[in-house]
Amino acid sequence: MRIVPASPSYFSAKPTFTDDFLSLSALLRKVATLPVIPPTEAPKVAWKTIDQYRIMTNEPVKTARYHRMLQILRRLNCIHPSLMPDEVVQAMLRYKKPNQPGEVQPAPGVIDELGRAKGVGRRKTSSAVAWLVEGEGEVLVNGKSLSQFFGRLHHRESAVWALKATSRLDKYNVFALVQGGGLTGQAEAMTLAVAKSLLVHEPALKPALRRAGTITRDPRRVERKKPGHVKARKMPTWVKR
């Protein structure tokens, strides 16, 4: 009576990986004739990184080999979605990250019973909350008019840029609360807040607003000071002795 291991790759150095690779290759051979879509149109998938795979299998898998396996997975992912066999979906599940991009959707904004849509925006150290209602183009920032709050015309234009760029300035009224930071930060925080609340009213404006640059939060902030430097980057003056 000879005891035979369940897997033929039991005596290889990386039995799990070898099994995975062989099973995926076999699967691909089986479904190779199914129609495919171009890779650019295939659903976006975040595959496990090599490190995550190594931890999962507890085997020293080489990068190049793992990439070869990923190529098979990407090819499987290109099968036309309407004809995708359930077997393939189940097989790919093992190699996907637990959270896929686009899975976590923010709760859609709502227009409340008074017709207000709320949006929040941040820039530098300022944050702004804006409420948008349909109206004639009146703007109140912290209870003051736009010209009273922002002395510079540039800041005023920044604050309502989302409305101005989509020529909706005379269609909505804005109430905003801003705090923190300086005037530039507050004005540009308001840009984002107004844009987000405008998206609640008119979601179709998103491409136009992205072109106007009011969707993306500007992540820049003051760089920290470092030891040995006078400021973040500035070095003390060079002295001969």
Binding site: G137, E138, S145, L146, Q148, L153, R156, K164, L169, D170
Partner: peptide, 15 residues
């Protein structure tokens, strides 16, 4: 109309 509305808003509601 659009130009007037824009300036009216930027001027703090017609200041």
């Amino acid at each position: 109309e659009g130009f007037v509305a824009e300036k009216w808003s930027l001027a703090g509601m017609g200041n």
